[in-house]
């Protein structure tokens, strides 16, 4: 009897899980569907589910009008560049916080995280002016730096929690075995922290790829990434939903594919090392 109940319960849980998953995925599924609709059918009421005239015209139009590759390239450069630069700064920072903490290390970490709670608009004007003065507007370098700074607190936090899991005695053993600081990092800490570094890397590529406030505001054409590509198709008049959907689909497809192949690392990353 107990078994029957638990089977029922399992079935119920499965249904709920699928329901939630569908709910979360619905906007993406809808966007993809819309991208294959002719413009008039895209805004039809009641909405048409699958029985529309499937077309790839939107994709042709979108690429014809704006191109795709240069946006894609900018997205890749900005996402990879800001993540690499962030790791370069965050690894030593997280290292010292995890293994040689000071009295205020904890407060410092909390403060860093709290900067994430500040609305981005609050620094819009100063940052814009600084960028204009330095000639960094619409430059890839400028965006790499900004996105790196935005995500740095998260990178440091994630690496910190991963490093914390590594027993200090193992690093001390390396020191006793005659390892210099550099060898300790190279042969002991890094190999042990590889899973953590990998998930941090992946999560931050995704965050940087999806960032759509600074990337849109600080670029015009030269450094414009895929977020700008999408926003270019929303216009105040005319029919644009299908084309917008096609652009969005093309923008999220690469990161979705990457996310799919790195699911395991990603889950580890999102739980901040709490689950092993």
């Amino acid at each position: 009897m107990a078994r029957a109940v638990s089977t029922q319960r399992k079935a119920f849980n499965t249904v709920v899980a699928w329901g939630v998953a569908l709910l979360i995925a619905f906007p993406i599924i809808w966007t993809v569907l819309t991208s294959f609709k002719p413009e008039p059918q895209a805004v039809a009421t009641p909405p048409i589910w699958l029985g529309f005239d499937w077309t790839t015209k939107n994709y042709h139009d979108v690429v014809q009008q704006r191109g795709y590759f240069s946006f894609f390239l900018n997205s890749v450069i900005i996402a990879l560049g800001s993540t690499a630069l962030g790791l370069l700064i965050a690894i030593p920072a997280a290292w010292s916080m995890a293994f040689v903490p000071g009295r205020r290390t904890r407060d410092l970490l909390m403060w860093m995280l709290s900067t994430k709670m500040m609305p981005a608009v609050a620094v819009l004007t100063p940052l814009y002016l600084i960028f204009r003065t330095l000639g960094l507007l619409d430059s890839r370098l400028g965006l790499v730096v900004v996105l790196m700074l935005i995500n740095l607190p998260i990178i440091v936090w994630m690496l910190y929690t991963y490093f914390k899991e590594i027993p200090g005695e193992i690093l001390e053993a390396a020191r006793m075995d005659g390892a210099s600081l550099w060898n300790e990092i190279l042969y002991v800490l890094t190999p042990m922290a590889i899973p953590g570094i990998a998930s941090t890397l992946i999560l931050n590529i995704i965050l940087a790829w999806n960032e759509a406030f600074w990337t849109i505001i600080l670029t015009v054409t030269d450094a414009a990434p895929l977020t700008k590509f999408i926003s270019g198709f929303s216009s105040p008049q005319g029919l644009f939903y299908a084309k917008l959907s096609a652009a969005s689909t093309m923008a999220i497809a690469p990161i979705l594919i990457m996310g799919w192949f790195s699911q395991k690392q990603l889950v580890r990353g999102l739980t901040f090392g709490a689950v092993k």
Partner: peptide, 29 residues
């Protein structure tokens, strides 16, 4: 520093390098 003193230590937790084989662990110093 500990590396320069020429002493060896055995820890209560053993503190072996988990990602290395026994051979590499012993050969590390």
């Amino acid at each position: 520093g500990p590396a320069q003193r020429g002493l060896a230590m055995v820890f209560q937790s053993y503190a072996l390098y988990p990602h290395m084989s026994v051979r590499s662990n012993i050969a590390f110093p």
